[in-house]
Design a protein around this nucleic acid. Sequence first.
RNA 1: GCGGACGUGGCGAAACUGGUAGACGCAAGAGACUUAAAAUCUCUCGGAGAGAUCUGUACGGGUUCGAUCCCCGUCGUCCGCACCA
Length: 876
Amino acid sequence: MATERYNPRDAEPRWQQEWDNNKVFETDNEDPREKYYVLEMFPYPSGRIHMGHVRNYAMGDVVARYKRARGYNVLHPMGWDAFGMPAENAAMERGVHPAAWTYQNIASMKAQLKVMGLSLDWSREFATCDVEYYQRQQHLFLDFLDKGLVYRKQSKVNWDPIDNTVLANEQVIDGRGWRSGALVEQRELTQWFFRITDFSQDLLDSLDTLSHWPEKVRLMQKNWIGRSEGLSIRWEIVPETGAGDATEVTVYTTRADTLFGASFIAIAADHPLAKKAAESSTEIDAFCDECRRAGTSLAALETAEKKGIDTGIRVRHPLDPSWELPVYVANFVLMDYGTGAIFGCPSGDQRDLDFARKYDLPVVPVVMPGDGDAATFSVDDEAYVGDGVMINSRFLDGLAIEDAFERVAEKLEQTMIAGAPQAERKVNFRLRDWGISRQRYWGCPIPVIHCEVCGVVPVPKADLPVKLPEDVTFDKPGNPLDRHPTWRHVACPQCSKDARRETDTMDTFVDSSWYFARFTAPWENNPTDPKVASHWLPVDQYIGGIEHAILHLLYSRFFTRAMKAVGHVALDEPFKGLFTQGMVVHETYSRGEGAQREWITPAEIIIVENDGKRQATLIETGDPVTIGSIEKMSKSKKNVVDPDDIIASYGADTARFFVLSDSPPDRDVIWSEAGVEGSHRFVQRIWRLISEASSFLEASDASPAKDGDALPISQLAHKTLKAVQADYDKLAFNKAVARLYELVNALAAPLTLVAEGKASPETIAAVKDATSILISLMAPMMPHLAEQCWVEIGGTGLIAQRDWPVFEEALVAENEITLPVQINGKKRADLTIARDADQTAIESAVLAIDAVKTALNGQNPKKIIVVPQRIVNVVV
RNA sequence: GCGGACGUGGCGAAACUGGUAGACGCAAGAGACUUAAAAUCUCUCGGAGAGAUCUGUACGGGUUCGAUCCCCGUCGUCCGCACCA
């Protein structure tokens, strides 16, 4: 009865073809069933898929296939996040056009994804660099512009003087451009911004409604938005102290309670008052310059000494006009948070204290611990930042800090200077508007025209798309659009005079901020079909990496609100459920030390185990190799395993099953050769057991046993069905995997019995029922094997189109249960008793147990605790 | 510095969130089958003990009939933000 081994190389392409032929995964927007939208973060077409993709898409595919079986109309699309720097780098390095490079990569990655057997609706595929896509993005931009959600302003950027381009903060390393190595300059450029801050409060508040998001991501977004409640206070400038025409300076504070501890005002180097002071002092001017330069390097900020310079300007204390304080320019004050000016309270803030000690400014403690002594409490070289009561604060003395804040706020709100209240309550956000201008070629052109007469003129929608020119060169640094001979020259749409196009393109995060909406109707002339988009959205389950926890997800949330404001969708939150999956990690292998260290790929080595110690050697030479730490698969460490190789040797099902096994999906999974082989053994085992018994199973009906020898088989199958269903609902794939192992282990003996012709008709029917449940359960993870097994036992139609089985309540519920019996909290015995036995029945049964009798030693128990269906505890 | 998560066998992990700790897998060991190997099958596998038992979820305390789970403290690892006024 020997059967052939399961051959995925033969079976998998056949089933993929079969699914394609039947258009099983193409989704009909008109389908009346309840919708379910599952989406994995679309990939950047770098050229090859990696194991992280395999894991991400395997998870999404399990959800898609499971929900389809549960009767939902599932949308499961795929596309390409295709604009971005790597394509331009390839153009610069190898002379290949970014478009050619990108579309080639898409073709090869698509072929790789196809081999995985994912249940994707490829008819909706698009790349963000398709004109058909970015044209609609330009449409959205114009709508946003019209609605005031986009604006232009001067802003500081990191400018690389060799590459002639703006760099993102991440691209500046130790103050130098990451490509050119040139010292980065701060430049003022006019850039386009999206008004994401219009939605700060809403983006923050709505986080509470996202109950199917990881708590961690919500918290990260909350911190990123960074709301704080404070007081904006106007300080009068003492005339003739060097401030020119300025009569006041506004300071933002969350600690108005500490106002009597103030000993100086500090302003940013870019603050108007600083600029004024710099006019009359070369020293101040030089200091401001230094601050601006130091601004870029993040690492430098951490260690940077707190420095400042006295401007000579003096201000009056808001609560005591006779009290004058100095105004310093300080390197730690940020122009773009609050008002770019603070008051320093040295006793209550470590940074202010360091500053005060350095410049010999007063340190007056104003808050002390509740049990402190006001007469002796002092601050030396450690500021007191804790809660407490007010001291040295005149009318605030003795108050709690919250009450002191209120008193100060009330008083200053009522004090009028120059016809306006001296202070007002103000909510501040850390969140900045989103600068989207990029001086790059390979991005979505910003559809505006600059006219000397009319100013900034939007490109009329009828003139869209603003297409990227194809004949561009990358032999020189800078933006190819800028030096294109003709592209930028156009007639002004309003006055027809010569004008020039905007040559900046959009940040690629814009492209990924609405693709999920486009998938709902990618053929639409408008960005979306609002009715269709509102039907499909929100995405029910979005799956991707934690690295997008802030930017991508926040931008998408903003975009959905903005699109709603201009009528393209009718909702605020794009993603109802979010799941952030862990990485695929692998051991690293290397030779040599320090600079000589050479990384080696897993394919080049062999590992043998000696006395429990693993030793790696180079296959080619037999040289020893050092086994290093487990890290994220990366090209630089060469610890990558190519999905193609794995699928070629084990098949897609094994690869999919393995990345879902063992580790919880939100945790990292360690790729190991032994692990994959384990998964592959399981695939073969299922096939062997089922195919050996197939002739008998084929000839029988499927019917669960109600009693008799086969009852346990049916009970386990139906219990597993119930449990795996719950696991899939919770995305607990690793647990589902474990339960499949259990079911197969338990089915092994009965299946062998059937194969040997020794089973009764009732048993065969029960085994067939259990086997078809098994096939349905494994289908989301191992879809090809499931189809093959289904045919083998005489099933008709495709498993991919078959309904999810329904478990029988009677088989899941038990008549008798086994309760653990504890004595003083330690398990001492088991008690098997009727499921519905009452308290007294259980108690008397427990007291009859030998172990209990021995423990009691003739005495009465102190207490018997019976937790229904769970446990019994006897307290002696 | 601020905020958060986590810590269970040789390893990845379970434990229905207060109820039998270690399911399932990997690795390892023993055996069966085989001329042999692979594959497959059976058994063992936290520690101590011959055994009944004792002990064990980073460490120290607490609450509870009962704690991997709740509370307090300590140590360690990882992540996010970071001169935010």
